[in-house]
Every structure is written in structure tokens, then in C-alpha cells.
């Protein structure tokens, strides 16, 4: 039993890491799809709970775009919930 729990845990951790690496290195459209997929699967509340504040290099255009993207997704998610 412990052996299989071990394996399931490892597969989960590796899968999450792989998705994160794709998200981090992907283009804005890839990021958008992954974020939208996450919000679709887990809901906006869970996403808002988990999403870190945008920080990092404040001159970095990618950070600014990501911030705008997250805001748009939050707004669109909010709009869906209000329907």
C-alpha cells in the first residue's frame, strides 16, 4: 500500500511541476489557456486563494502582461458567476 501511495504522490508532484514549467516558460496564450483551465476546473475562489500577488521584476513586460491577464480572467470569471 505504502509503495503505491509513494508512486501516486511522486507522479502527482512531477505532473504538477511539469505543468508549472510549461506555464512559466510558455507564451502568453499558453499561460492564458492554463490559467483558464485551472479556473474552469477548480473555480475562481480556489484560484484567487492560491494565486500569488504579481511581483518580481517590475520592469518586466511579461509580469505586467500576466497581471493584466489575471485581472481579465478574474473579471470574466466573476461575470460567469454573476450570470
Amino acid at each position: 500500500m505504502g509503495y503505491w501511495l509513494d508512486r501516486v504522490f511522486i507522479v502527482l508532484v512531477v505532473a504538477i511541476s511539469a505543468v508549472y514549467v510549461i506555464y512559466a516558460l510558455g507564451s502568453m496564450s499558453v499561460k492564458r489557456r492554463i490559467l483558464a483551465g485551472f479556473i474552469h476546473c477548480f473555480g475562481l475562489r480556489i484560484y484567487t486563494l492560491l494565486s500569488p500577488k504579481t511581483m518580481g521584476c517590475t520592469h518586466c513586460g511579461v509580469e505586467l502582461q500576466k497581471k493584466n491577464l489575471i485581472r481579465q480572467l478574474k473579471q470574466s470569471g466573476q461575470a460567469d458567476q454573476n450570470k
Binding site: 511522486i10 508532484v13 512531477v14 504538477i16 511541476s17 511539469a18 508549472y20 514549467v21 512559466a24 516558460l25 500569488p52 511581483m55 518580481g56 521584476c57 517590475t58
Partner: peptide, 24 residues
Amino acid sequence: WQRVQIFVTRVGTIILSLMIILWF
């Protein structure tokens, strides 16, 4: 503080994720 945040965030996110995949 911003540099520390950037560095630690990178270690805790992209570097950690890549290390897990590399370990696998």
C-alpha cells in the same frame, strides 16, 4: 527586498519544478 523576493520566488517555483522533473 525585491531582489530577495525575485530570487527566492524563482528558487521556490521554476527552479524547484525543474529540479523535481530532473530528479524524476
